[in-house]
Design a protein around this nucleic acid. Sequence first.
DNA 1: ACCAAATTTAACCATATGGTTAAAACCTAC
DNA 2: GTAGGTTTTAACCATATGGTTAAATTTGGT
Lengths: 206, 206
Amino acid sequence: MEKLTDTEQRILQAATEVFLEKGKEGARMQEIARKAGINKALLHYYFRSKEQLYQRVFNYEVRSFFAALLQSVPQTRDLAQFLKGFIDGYLDQLAARPRMVRFISWEISQDMTAFKTILKEILLETSDSPLHHWITILEEAIEKEIIRPLNIHHFLFNLLGMCVYPFLAQPVIETLFPTIRVNSSEFLQERKKEIFELVWRGITKT
Amino acid sequence: MEKLTDTEQRILQAATEVFLEKGKEGARMQEIARKAGINKALLHYYFRSKEQLYQRVFNYEVRSFFAALLQSVPQTRDLAQFLKGFIDGYLDQLAARPRMVRFISWEISQDMTAFKTILKEILLETSDSPLHHWITILEEAIEKEIIRPLNIHHFLFNLLGMCVYPFLAQPVIETLFPTIRVNSSEFLQERKKEIFELVWRGITKT
DNA sequence: ACCAAATTTAACCATATGGTTAAAACCTAC
DNA sequence: GTAGGTTTTAACCATATGGTTAAATTTGGT
């Protein structure tokens, strides 16, 4: 872990904000400089080019996004606790970075190469225990007939979709239902409860 | 409905492809011209500026996206048929335009003004019967104790999230699970089945 | 065949933006 | 305080891109 000067940190902070908001193409070096309280040339002094600065930010953000996902997988062997813990944890992680889903979903589709490299690294670095735990705990629950048989992949996509949706559709939701504030803690609490209830009743044997 | 010349149609077709793929900022007039088989100046002859061309495309795409959503709401009063019909219909609509969710989710967050105007128009034009039907059919089912009490908004977000997710996370999914092809018809079929099962068991009274 | 209108093109322009450079300001150790 | 390195800045450059223009070509009616 290299140590960063104060200026470098301010630049990275500003760059992250701008890139997450506007994307790679939409971001302006000028704006990043302004936000960091320095001028444009200094940006190139520290980070040679927009490309390099972007890669740095992208790399870091993608890593922490997937780290957050993996960290949200609890250790419990109790399925109800496991699911509740995952939903709570992942939603909290998403709420802490409301723009991240949208950014990653858009930017990855623009250039898959960088993303693929990073993902491979992550899978090598991280012990795959969280993902493995996810699969085993569900397979086990099916075998023990605690839950009905289901496609584990699709179940994962279902869960992730429900968690992620409000952050992607925020403008639509808040325009259509003006009383809803997607980033409010009430909404987050409701969400946790409603997702868990649907999922739990949806998979347990009757 | 104004009639469009062949060239105008080719331009709009090309512009749609490029804008959906690259976004407003990332799109290049040059590329649109090339795809349409004409040169750059002709673009400006027909559609004064990039902004105007973009607005035209954005307007049309947003409208058809929400039209697709509303069209997917079936008329049935039978709840199971209603939900099954909606899931099937909406997933088919999404599969027909796999890039659209991502485009709209990204571009709307870039500039809400255009979107808000369009949405107001849509809500005025369209009889709100589909949305109204959605609410009444669910309230009725709760009242008749066919399903458990639930928050209708969150239930909608849950359903939409599950439908939409694969199209947003496509690169991630296909990298993580190389056997899955998000756009394949098998995957689509599985998806329809798994979403409905989860939802149906998740809301019906035991 | 011919004219006028519509269509198409190549060449050019203005501006925005990423990037460079050389000099000024600013530390810090002696 | 001053020499030497580091940090910061203003001014400038090159290129990409949106946009314009005037001329050429095609089209369609008579």
